[in-house]
Nucleic acid binder design. Structure first.
Lengths: 346, 346
DNA sequence: AAAATGTTTCAAAGCGCTTTGACAAACGAA
DNA sequence: TTCGTTTGTCAAAGCGCTTTGAAACATTTT
């Protein structure tokens, strides 16, 4: 069922049929009615590919991600993508997901752009941090990033105020008497992890005897949370209670997954939350990992990553229409939500 | 940079350039060399949309999913998609992910097909079970399903032997003296959930006094796992130890998430795994939810959903080439992996 | 030397749509 | 009546590629 067929059927030109269907004003009302009726009857669906070729618009946004990062395997990233996809669905757009070999992100983006497969690109902050992807921003192609870009070239972006969130969280711990704090962070090369560390340090600076006794950057997995915590405990114990290594009385975790690992480790060594160690974790509000999953429920800094995804999609559409400036940046506040994982030391 | 430009640059016809680039044999070796050199120099990238229009091939596979199901929010589903995407990446194909409003899956599929956006469709078994999507199978469009289809029309599919897996798991419990078994299952309308229930029932049939004292179908979330377990415990206790309600001594869980919920509930009521209640869960081997996440680690039936995703993609490519018959079905065995969550009753 | 065969190249058509520019018909104002 | 407008329609060009069918040239066979 092509446009041509409908035109022939109705004795009209292809032009008129196309215009009628696409809501152009210069079509007679009766003609339009007939066209719609015929399209309905013949179950006509415009060929998206042909339309794209003609208009130059792809009708899709792209996300490229290195294969090794196992993007889709992270519930957090996929929750973000859900938000993106939600918004796109409302506007009849598709999401093209393209995985590439490690270190070829730039190439993957170029290929998606040059081949006309997408109208815009969504970037995770990681992609912005090195030479590989630098330059993407200067390409004059609609791009919006999630996470504060580290490069000089501005890219419209949305992020949460990680510095503030972790500064507030650390302050919350300090106010409850904690002095030896630990930080289980994300990838140290990423803006959010840097900001969180800086936030914690800023809070500690205000309190004389407060110390960051553990700061471990890396991937945000259950396994690493467990290992690092186990390590800290065992090292502390081997040195002896009187030794110089100090076990934190409170742990800040950059993700609920890390917190779960830490809790498991503590339990394995006979320690309990919050009796022995308090925990505050960052919660991206993903359905699969609710902070009430643990006993006691986790006190968190909280911000919906899905909402962020949706917003990124919105911004990208704005970018394409031209009503979002290239250096636009949006920073969201993350709320501290009190639950049961922090103890007030006395 | 279009084909035309290269042709002009080289004084060749567009035909020859196209053929040279695409490896057709009828091009002089020297000519081909020149064409490649020019393409390289001008940084030429073929326009994918134009190519698609000309060839009729989209270079992408599609997945459509109802929005409400929050497909991307489930780490299990996304792990599956990772597998799919892995395979596609190797072959330079894209994955188009399209969410639709609840109940309009069929429409979403039709639209992806009719608009020429995809060359093939991947279905989750849920999509196959009702009239909405029935008929998709008869469309003569390449489709491969994950999960045994419930409809009459055959569709190439891959699934695990859920009946056997849960039969074996239940048998394992029976052999260790358990007689009151509970099953926290997935959506009852789905083939896999039905098969699992049937598998458990088959195992119980062999042992005189064995009973399925709890069988709860529904979504496979932490929350539901917790609620159902809490309910079972409280109901049992209110009736009194001597009452007729019997608390299961062992729980079979259709997902690790359910098991986590159950464990949390047990702990809240002062019960412990495996001292008071034993657990076997199904493990899809997703990185975010390792069975060693709990203490003690979970005994599981185990099968990689990511590998399944990859295999589905392979089958779909085979389907397109025509070397996978339309009624092909592949069933994988799920292994029982012993860890620490089952107690031998004496 | 002519015919037959094989190798390389090309012009043109086509994929299904949008969009431009022209034109005819209908209308209102002068 | 005539002229400028508005309204509704159309033919044709173009998007960038692949593919068909024919032509030009080179090589081998008779």
């Amino acid at each position: 069922m092509a446009l041509k067929d409908i035109a022939r059927e109705l004795g009209l030109s292809q032009t008129t049929v196309s215009r009628a269907l696409n809501g152009y004003p210069e079509v007679g009302v009766e003609t339009r009615r007939r066209v719609f009726a015929a399209a309905e009857k013949l179950n006509y669906r415009p060929n998206a590919v042909a339309r794209r070729l003609a208009t130059g618009r792809a009708g899709a946004f792209g996300v490229v991600s290195p294969r090794s990062r196992r993007t889709l395997a992270s519930p957090i990233v996929t929750d973000f993508l859900t938000g993106v996809s939600d918004k796109l669905t409302e506007d009849g757009l598709n999401l093209v997901f393209s995985q590439v070999e490690e270190g070829r992100e730039r190439e993957g983006c170029d290929s998606l752009i040059a081949s006309g497969t997408v109208d815009g690109l969504i970037l995770f902050s990681p992609l912005l941090e090195d030479e590989r992807t630098a330059g993407l921003a200067t390409l004059n192609f609609p791009i919006v990033a999630h996470g504060r870009p580290l490069t000089g070239t501005p890219v419209p972006s949305i992020s949460i105020d990680n510095h503030n969130a972790f500064c507030v969280a650390a302050g919350y711990l300090l106010a409850r008497g904690h002095r030896r704090i630990g930080l289980l962070n994300g990838d140290e090369h990423q803006a959010y992890a840097m900001d969180r560390l800086a936030g914690v340090e800023a809070a500690l600076r205000d309190v004389e005897d407060a110390r960051l006794v553990l700061a471990s950057p890396g991937d945000m997995s259950f396994e690493r949370g467990r290992k690092v915590t186990l390590n800290a405990i065992d090292q502390h114990r081997s040195v002896g209670e009187a030794g110089r290594t100090a076990l934190p009385t409170a742990l800040l975790c950059s993700s609920i997954l890390l917190a779960l690992g830490a809790i498991a480790a503590l339990r394995e060594r006979g320690l309990e939350v919050p009796r022995d160690v308090s925990i505050i974790a960052h919660d991206d509000q993903v359905a699969a990992l609710p902070p009430i999953m643990t006993t006691p429920a986790l006190t968190t800094t909280s911000s919906s990553i899905r909402a962020a995804g949706r917003r990124v999609a919105e911004l990208l559409q704005g970018r394409i229409r031209g009503d979002v400036p290239t250096d636009y940046a949006e920073v969201w506040k993350a709320d501290l939500v009190e639950r049961g994982s922090v103890r007030h030391l006395d």
